[in-house]
C-alpha cells in the first residue's frame, strides 16, 4: 500500500490527537494523585543489582549511550544513566561513559556531575570517566572494547540506538565477566543482546524505563496512557480486520477495491490543494 503522508491526513490527525490525548489525560490523572500500578520489568530491576555488584567487586560500571545523536532515544538513555549514576555515587563507584556524539558529550558530563553532587559526593566525580571516543561507528566500538578490557568493568549497561556494533560491545563485556543489561528500540539488535547479555529490555519497555526507575507520577501516567494508546490501536486493528473480512465475504475474496477505498480514506485531507 503506497500511502503519501508528507502531511497529516484527517485519519492521521485524529489518531495522533487521540493517542496524545490519552497520554496527557493519564499524565494529569497521575499528577492529581492517582498513582498507577506498573508491572515488574526484570531487566530494569537488574540495574540496581548491576551497580551493587560493581561496588562489591571494586570495579567500575560502563554505560554506553549508543550511537544516537540528540534525540528522543538518547534522552531516554540519559535518564537511565542519571539513575545509574546516582546509585553509583551513593555506593562510591565509578561510572565510565564513552560517548559517540559531540553534542551529547557535555550533557552526559553534566548528568554525571549532578548525580554525584546530589548524593553529596561531588569530589568522587572524575571528568576523565566521560570520554568522547569517536563519531565513527567502529572506531567507537574498538574504543569501548579497549576500555571494557582495560578497566575490567564489573557491570555494563547498553542503552540507546545500536547497530552492528551491538554484539561487539556485548561480547566484550561478557569476555571480562561483566553483568550486562541492554535496552534499545533498535529491534534488529535485540536478538544479539538477548544472546549476549544477562538482561535485555525489549521494545516499548525501553521507554518505560524512566517511569519504572523514578516512579515519578508524570512518567507513570504517561506509561498508562501508552497502554491505552495500544488498546486503541488494537481495537482499530480488530475492527478493521472484521471490516476486511466482511468485504472479502461480499466481494468474492477480491481485496483490490478494499485497498483502494482504504488508501483514499487514510489519505483524505480536507482543504488540500486540487490535483493532489
Amino acid at each position: 500500500m503506497d500511502l503519501r503522508l508528507e502531511h497529516a491526513s484527517l485519519f492521521v490527525l485524529v489518531l495522533e490527537l487521540l493517542l496524545c490525548g490519552l497520554i496527557l489525560a493519564r499524565i494529569f490523572a497521575a499528577r492529581g494523585g492517582r498513582i498507577p500500578f506498573i508491572r515488574r520489568i526484570p531487566g530494569l530491576s537488574a540495574i540496581d543489582e548491576g551497580v551493587g555488584r560493581a561496588t562489591e567487586m571494586g570495579r567500575p560500571v560502563l554505560f554506553s549511550l549508543g550511537l544516537g545523536g540528540l534525540d528522543i532515544v538518547t534522552l531516554q538513555a540519559l535518564a537511565v544513566l542519571g539513575h545509574v549514576a546516582r546509585l553509583a555515587a551513593r555506593y562510591a563507584s565509578r561510572v565510565i561513559v564513552p560517548v559517540v556524539d559531540a553534542v551529547i558529550f557535555p550533557v552526559t558530563e553534566e548528568v554525571l556531575r549532578d548525580a554525584y553532587a546530589a548524593e553529596g559526593k561531588p569530589e568522587l566525580f572524575q571528568p576523565e570517566d566521560v570520554r568522547f571516543l569517536s563519531d565513527q561507528q567502529f572506531a567507537y566500538a574498538s574504543g569501548v572494547m579497549g576500555i571494557i578490557n582495560r578497566e575490567s568493568v564489573a557491570s555494563s549497561f547498553l542503552f540507546g540506538s545500536f547497530f552492528a556494533e551491538s554484539l561487539i560491545l556485548a561480547e566484550a563485556g561478557h569476555q571480562v565477566g561483566a553483568v550486562q543489561v541492554a535496552g534499545t528500540p533498535s529491534t534488529t539488535q535485540i536478538p544479539f543482546f538477548i544472546a549476549a547479555c544477562d538482561y535485555t529490555i525489549i521494545g516499548e519497555e525501553y521507554y518505560a524505563a524512566s517511569a519504572y526507575l523514578t516512579q515519578e507520577p508524570t512518567f507513570l501516567g504517561s506509561l498508562i496512557g501508552q497502554d491505552w494508546g495500544k488498546i486503541a490501536l488494537l481495537a482499530t486493528i480488530v475492527i478493521m480486520v472484521g471490516v476486511a473480512s466482511l468485504w472479502s465475504l461480499t466481494h468474492g475474496g477480491a481485496m483490490t477495491g478494499f485497498e483502494e477505498k482504504l488508501t483514499g480514506f487514510l489519505q483524505y485531507m480536507p482543504g488540500a490543494a486540487a490535483g493532489r
Binding site: C20, I72, L75, G82, G203, T214, T218, F219, G229, L233
Partner: peptide, 23 residues
Amino acid sequence: FGIGIGGLAMSLRVWLSLEKGTY
C-alpha cells in the same frame, strides 16, 4: 507499534516540557 507510541509519549513530554529529570 509499541516503540512508536512510547516515542510519541516521550516526544509529547519533551515538547510540552513535562519531562523531568537531571537535565
